[in-house]
Amino acid sequence: MEKHLFLAGHTACYGCGEALGARLVVDAAGPNIITTDATGCLEVFSSRWPQSAWAVPFIHSLFENSAAVASGIEVALRAMGRQEEAKVIAQGGDGGTADIGLQCLSGMLERGHDVLYVCYDNEAYMNTGVQRSGLTPYDSDTRTSPFGRASWGNRYRKKDMPAIAAAHGAPYIATASVAYPKDLQAKVKKALNIVGPKYLQVHVPCPLGWKSDPALTIKVAKLAVETGLYPIFEMENGVVTKVRKISSPKPVTEYLKLQGRFAHLFKKSGGEEEIKKIQQIADENIRKYGLLSETAAAKVSAEKE
C-alpha cells in the first residue's frame, strides 16, 4: 500500500469525507507533527483502544479543548527547547470548533500560538446521530432542526468561522474541500510554514448525515464549491488573497438534490421559495468573494445587457 500517516483499519463510514480529509492533512504535514483532536467522529473511528490509525503523535482529551491542548503542547515544546521537533496541528469537527470549542479556539488564536487548527466541517454533530451545529447550513434537516409541518429544517445560516478567525488577527486562514485534494494539501504545507495561529476549514461530506451516496462524496463536495455555497479561499493577514474561481456557477438545486438532508425542499409546496433563499446565499458568496472566473463574469454581464 501507499505509505500514509493516517492508516487504514479506521472505522469511519463508507465514503467518509472526514477520514479522507484527515489523511490528506497529516500526509501533507509529514511525520514531524503532534496532533490533537476534539471528541467526535474522527477521534472515535481512529483511536479505539488498543488500536490507533495515527502514525503521528496524537492526543484526544475532551470535546471543547482541542485548541487549548494544542496551545499547551506548543508552549511545552518551546519551554523545553524542543520547538524544532514538531509542528502542532489541532483538529476538531464543526461543533467542536465553532460551538463548544469556540472559546478555546479564540484563546489559541488571540495568544498567537504557532498552531494550525483544522476544522473538518461536515456541517452537523454526526458522531451522535446528526444534530445541528453552528456550521449546519440553512434548511438542513437534522435531528435537532428537523423538517416538519412547521419547519423547513435549520433556521439559521452557517456561522462565518473564517471571519471570526480573521478578527483575531490570525496570519493565515483558508477554506478547502476534499473535492480538491491538491489544493487542500498545498494549504496545509503553506500554513505550516507560517509562524503563528492558522485556521483551515475543510469541507468534508458525511454520507450518513447528508443522506448522500457514499460513492458521490467528492462529487457532492465539488458541487458545494461550484454552486458558490462553499467558497474556497485564502486570507493572509486579514485580506482575501486567493479564491477558487467558478467558471459557470451551477444552480444550488444540483447540489441540494443529491442530499436527503434537503429532500424536503423538493417535496413540500413552498420549497421553491426556500431553495431561492439558498440560491441567494450562494449568490452572496459569489459576489462577496469574487468567485466568478473572468469568462463567467463576462458571460453574466452580457446576459444582463
Partner: peptide, 20 residues
C-alpha cells in the same frame, strides 16, 4: 500562558504535561 478561562488553564497544562 494567559488563558481565557480556568477550563483552558487546565487544558493547556494537560497538553503541556502530555508533551513531557
Amino acid at each position: 500562558v494567559t488563558v481565557e478561562s480556568e477550563f483552558a488553564a487546565a487544558s493547556v497544562v494537560l497538553g503541556a504535561s502530555a508533551t513531557g
